[in-house]
Amino acid sequence: MGDRMYEKILIPSMGEYLEETSAHVLKLVDDRETELIGLYVLDTSTPIFTPAKVKEMMVQELKKRGTEVLKEMEETFKKPNIKFKGIMVEGDPAHQIIKTAEQQNTDLIVISTGKSKINKHILGSVSEKVIHSTPCTTLLIKTE
């Protein structure tokens, strides 16, 4: 496959580890013509009994954060050989990452992991779920 190995890369991010992920992606892309897709998933699920207006506020805040994350990605990947597109979707993060990779026909997902063992047990891991059902090659970046 040589130089043309990864032409369309999906970079899901919730804002964490963005610097480290971007550094890896830039190194990987180098000066090859590449299309990068930044993905922010709005996880708007809330437990029962969450007041409707509070849920609205949560969604607004998450949307604001998503716009900031995608904007930061766009700035980072502003290079002549890179075509960047930001996508914001709503739903379960792991499911939406896999779905977007399939819909956009990407040939690589670059995702980061950095949770401690306790956090993984309590909160679960999006990257683990993605790896188990990934439709394409996935690069898992271990962050501090």
Partner: peptide, 14 residues
């Protein structure tokens, strides 16, 4: 003056 959605950003229809 918060960031506006970029031209290259597809927003979720929430």
């Amino acid at each position: 003056d918060e960031p506006e959605e970029s031209a290259s950003t597809e927003a979720a229809s929430t």
